[in-house]
């Protein structure tokens, strides 16, 4: 799969064919797809605007209704991840839908290996989710009156959760790209898959916001395992889905 030579090469042995394939490293394909997505997003800003608008509006509404959550760190943790979960669904929903709607999905199919498409798309989605979290967190802290005490743990747990959500969301988005009501379906289908990561992230976040819930090392280990498993599952399954 992720070898220096494309799996297309199986059985092709002539020197000129090998020469062509050897120039086509999988990393080059991954970067070409990610670069294309960054350029497209920079020109259109569809995903960024809709995702950030959703996060900011929901955050403002929640802060107006519940006020400060300094004394309720567990509740603050829950609200933080509810906002990130739905903003993620909005962001990831368009990953392959935009390709299908613009009739560019077959261009990718004909020119790139499935696992390169998965990794390229996942890198873009992950960058989008990092940006979303980086902009949402300071606003959340300011509006909800909470403070992040175990910063390193919080950042590590959030990073792992976003990796798992980007990997699983990329697969689900590909599966649902040609289905009607895809965003609603994505939310329903994503929740059970995101749940193990979200459950662990909730604990770490609650602890970081000041809740006394004991050791979080098991949650961190579970998050690490789940993030790695999510990426591996994506690499293994994407060929069948795409």
């Amino acid at each position: 799969m992720a070898t220096s030579k494309s799996s297309w090469v199986k059985g092709i042995e002539s020197k000129e064919q090998i020469a062509l394939i050897s120039r086509t490293s999988w990393l080059r394909q991954v970067l070409a797809i990610a670069k294309k997505d960054f350029k497209s997003e920079w020109r259109t800003r569809h995903a960024l605007v809709t995702t950030l608008a959703f996060a900011i509006i929901s955050l403002t509404v929640v802060s107006l209704s519940v006020g400060s959550l300094r004394s309720e760190p567990a509740l603050a943790s829950g609200l933080f991840w509810v906002i990130l979960f739905f903003a993620t669904i909005v962001a990831l929903g368009r990953t392959f839908t935009k390709e299908v709607d613009a009739h560019t999905d077959n261009l990718l199919r004909l020119n790139a290996e499935p696992f390169a498409i998965f990794l390229g798309k996942m890198i873009f989605n992950l960058a989008l989710l990092f940006l979303l979290a980086a902009l949402t967190l300071p606003l959340f802290v300011a509006l909800m009156g909470v403070s992040v005490k175990q910063t390193a743990n919080f950042i590590f747990a959030t990073t792992l959760t976003l990796i798992a959500m980007a990997a699983l969301g990329t697969i689900l988005s590909a599966m649902l790209a040609k289905v009607q009501s895809r965003v609603a379906l994505l939310a329903v289908a994503a929740f059970p898959l995101f749940f193990p990561a979200l459950a662990a992230a909730l604990q770490v976040s609650a602890s970081a916001f000041g809740a006394e819930i004991g050791s979080i090392s098991n949650s961190m280990k579970a998050l690490l395992a789940y993030a790695v498993a999510s990426v591996l599952i994506g690499l293994l399954l994407f060929d069948e889905i795409w």
């Binding site: 294309k36 350029k39 497209s40 020109r43 259109t44 613009a102 009739h103 560019t104 999905d105 077959n106 261009l107 004909l110």
Partner: peptide
Amino acid sequence: VLPDCEPYEEL
């Protein structure tokens, strides 16, 4: 060259 194999319009 197929009808559903289009270039990216925003690029």
